[in-house]
């Protein structure tokens, strides 16, 4: 790890100011992706701003028909929260599949989506549920938030404070793990919300999470795995590596989507 200057933020505004002013600065949330990257000397921020002691960034709350989760809420807290399990069980289950138990104790919702690793799970949930990212500056629809590989709509001094997930009628997440890293080789989040149906895919896309309109249309007619039979997505634009060709990933998107729909019931 390269040397850096550590800043323990005590408030959001102060953190935002530091982020804007300090050269080459980065937010430290749970650190479960950032620190391994820094250890490998693949990232070298000059300044780390730790949000660990900032109040008000944790918490899970049902507000009307929306589940609002603080950015510093850990995966373990989301996975085990009775509120989440009741409102959006698919989200609790997704959180329980991120990393491993020790990683889930530290890793956070905000940290995960700000990093937008193309193989991480949360982007599928945000896009699949049509969530809204709430930052120190504004509200950003999930569809507009994830802009590319490790890229988001966040501005340089903008910090995620919470995410609001509309509670769906039905939802499920199916993940096919990369055998080595255990990240999503393909993860599909399917949600049905009154008239709207969303199918969001993580892991497969060369530029991160994406929706599958053809699947959504088919499921609108009838929300059943049968509706997806014979449907597939083209392999173009999908990742291809030693763990799976683009064709294999394209195929898995169909399989995981069908299984997710079946699971959502």
């Amino acid at each position: 790890m390269y040397a850096f200057t550590y800043h323990r933020a005590t408030g959001l505004r102060q953190a935002g100011n530091m982020l804007g002013k300090l050269e080459d600065s980065k937010i430290l949330a749970g650190g479960q992706t950032l620190l391994p990257t820094m250890k490998q000397r693949l990232a070298s921020p000059a300044n780390l701003i730790d949000l660990g002691k900032v109040d008000g960034l944790k918490g899970i709350e049902l507000k009307g028909r929306s589940l609002v989760i603080g950015a510093m809420t850990t995966h373990s807290e989301v996975a085990t929260s009775p509120v989440v399990q009741q409102a959006i069980p698919a989200l609790a289950e997704l959180a329980s599949m991120i990393g491993d138990p020790a990683v889930r104790h530290m890793g956070t919702l905000g940290g995960s989506i700000a990093n937008n690793d193309p193989n991480s799970d949360y982007p599928a949930a945000l896009v699949g549920l049509g969530a809204t990212v709430i930052t120190t500056k504004r509200r950003i629809e999930a569809d507009a938030f994830f802009t590319g590989l490790f890229e988001t709509a966040l501005e340089a001094d903008e910090i995620i404070t919470k995410v609001s997930f509309p509670v769906p009628k039905k939802a499920a997440y199916m993940k096919f793990r990369n055998p080595a890293s255990r990240f999503a080789l393909v993860g599909v989040f399917v949600a049905k919300r009154s008239s709207e149906i969303r199918v969001a895919v993580t892991g497969a896309g060369a530029s991160g999470v994406f929706r599958v309109p053809a699947f959504e249309e088919a499921l609108k007619k009838r929300f059943s795995p049968k509706s997806l039979e014979g449907l597939s997505i083209p392999a173009t634009g999908l990742n291809s590596d030693i763990h799976g060709s683009a064709e294999y990933r394209a195929h898995l998107v169909g399989v995981m989507a069908r299984r997710a729909v079946a699971k959502a019931g």
């Binding site: 650190g31 479960q32 391994p36 491993d100």
Partner: peptide
Amino acid sequence: SQCGACVVHVDGKAVKSCTML
């Protein structure tokens, strides 16, 4: 951050001490 040889408990919870400052 995969092998877990470094797991300790921080405030009663298992964490990977190689992935925490």
